[in-house]
Amino acid sequence: MTSGLMTAREAGLIACVRCGLLHEKKIHECTRCGAYLESRDATSIQRVWALLFAGMITFVPANVLPMLKTNTLVEHSESTIIGGVFELIHHGSIGIAAIVFIASILIPVGKFIAIAYLAISVQRKSTLNQHQRHKLYEVVEFIGRWSMIDVFVVAILSALVQLDTIASINPGVAAFSFALSVIFTILSAQSFDARLIWDTDRTAHAK
């Protein structure tokens, strides 16, 4: 089906990923937009793994340490991400609990797994499911930023609920390490060169 297609690399050219312009192989800087040219990003997979591990490591304190510190007249309490989700369920806000749970737990964990799978499949030169893997990559790129919701919630609550003695809310360490985790994972996904998924395509169809 795709055998009639030809890549820039097969035509002996280098494409600029920023503006799409084609160049002869010996050129290293795009003549249109000035971006650095590389037929394939040689350090892509290394950077993907390094940033992914950084994202996973910072995700641990983000879940164990308190995200929110609440002070009221009667009590002082600290809650973690998952604790906040249970509190919302307890108050009957199931829908909002679901949003926080999906954005703060499911999406980050799903992203770790998806990026690792993409990197491994490229390293093994897998020829399977190229369309699905490319879709997965697009989804990961699109959805990753949305994990930031809970960080914003904490920031808004701590700015809004500052009522001297009656009630105050302050951010915990987890808010910061969670934000870091999201940033590392976005950078990891950005480092992935999607062209690597497709490189095995031609051999797959030719043989």
Binding site: L5, M6, T7, A8, R9, A11, L13, A15, C16, V17, R18, G20, L21, L22, H134, Y137, A194, R195, I197, W198, D199, D201
Partner: peptide, 11 residues
Amino acid sequence: DLVACPQCDTL
């Protein structure tokens, strides 16, 4: 006159 796909390199 050519453009390459930034995500799969197809011309």
